[in-house]
C-alpha cells in the first residue's frame, strides 16, 4: 500500500505450539484503523508483533519504514496493552513523569497527556484507587506521552461507559488528525462505524479490509456485524 504505516508480509506466529498467525499479509495506512474480530482471533498477537514484543516465527513486520521493535521506533510508537500497564501504587502524575523520563520527553508533556484523557482532577490520586475506566485512561495517557507517529491500542474501550467511549473515539480522531496513525482493536462490532478503515479478523486471518461503508456494500449488509457474518459464510462458514 502506498504510504503504509505498518506492513506485514507472511507474518507467522506460534504460541504454545498453536499457530496463531499463518502467513499474514497486511498494510495499514494513516487515520484511525479498527482491528475487529472475536476474542482469541489473534488481534493482540498481531498488535504485539507490530510493537515488537511478540516472538515471531517467520515473515516480516515493517513499521514506519523500520523493522518492528527496532531501536529507532521505540520513541515513535505508543502502545497500550489490554491491562492498563501502569504502576498501581503511584499517582497518575508520578506514573506519567516516570514514563516521560524514560521516553526523554519534557515535563510539560505530562500535563498535556493528563488533560488529553481528561484526568486532570485525578492527577495526584494513587492509581489503585481509581475506577477501571480511569485506570485504563492512565494507560492511554502513557501511550500518548511521546507524541508517537503510531498509536497501537489493544481494546482500549472495553467495559467503558458509553459516554466515555464516545469521548475516547473523539480523542483517537483528534490524535489521528494531528498526523498520528491510530490502530485500535476491539471485539465489539458496533465500534466499527467509528473507524476510518477496518480490518476484520477471524481465526488468524484478515477476512476483509476497507472503509466501513465499502465493506457493508460489498456484501449488501446494513451493519458491519451482518457484513462480518456474510463474509464468514461466503468463505465456507464456521469450520
Amino acid at each position: 500500500m502506498e504510504g503504509a504505516v505498518v506492513t506485514t508480509i507472511g507474518l507467522r506466529v506460534v504460541r504454545g505450539g498453536r499457530v496463531v498467525l499463518d502467513g499474514l499479509d497486511l498494510a495499514v495506512g494513516p487515520g484511525v484503523t479498527g482491528l475487529l474480530g472475536p476474542s482469541g482471533c489473534g488481534k493482540s498477537t498481531l498488535l504485539r508483533s507490530i510493537v515488537g514484543v511478540q516472538r515471531v516465527a517467520g515473515g516480516s513486520v515493517t513499521v514506519l519504514g523500520e523493522p518492528a521493535g527496532s531501536a529507532p521506533l521505540r520513541a515513535r510508537v505508543g502502545y497500550q496493552t489490554q491491562s492498563s500497564s501502569v504502576y498501581d501504587d503511584l499517582t497518575v502524575a508520578e506514573n506519567l513523569r516516570f514514563f516521560a523520563r524514560v521516553l526523554g520527553r519534557p515535563a510539560g508533556s505530562v500535563e498535556e497527556a493528563v488533560s488529553a484523557v481528561d484526568l486532570t482532577a485525578h492527577r495526584d490520586h494513587v492509581v489503585h484507587r481509581l475506577s477501571g475506566g480511569q485506570r485504563s485512561r492512565v494507560g492511554l495517557a502513557v501511550a500518548l506521552l511521546g507524541r508517537p507517529d503510531l498509536l497501537v491500542l489493544d481494546e482500549p474501550t472495553v467495559g467503558l461507559d458509553p459516554v466515555l467511549r464516545r469521548d475516547l473515539w473523539a480523542l483517537f480522531h483528534r490524535v489521528a488528525a494531528s498526523g498520528t496513525a491510530v490502530l485500535v482493536s476491539s471485539h465489539v462490532m458496533d465500534e466499527a462505524e467509528r473507524c476510518d478503515e477496518l480490518l476484520l479478523m477471524r481465526e488468524g486471518r484478515i477476512i476483509a479490509q476497507g472503509t466501513p461503508s465499502a465493506i457493508k456494500e460489498r456484501v449488501g449488509a446494513t451493519d458491519v456485524e451482518s457484513a462480518f457474518l456474510a463474509l464468514v459464510e461466503r468463505a465456507g462458514g464456521a469450520r
Partner: peptide
C-alpha cells in the same frame, strides 16, 4: 505480570 515490563520494552528501555 502487570504489563509494565512489556510497555517499557516498547520504549527506549
Amino acid at each position: 505480570s502487570s504489563g509494565t515490563l512489556e510497555r517499557l520494552f516498547t520504549m527506549p528501555m
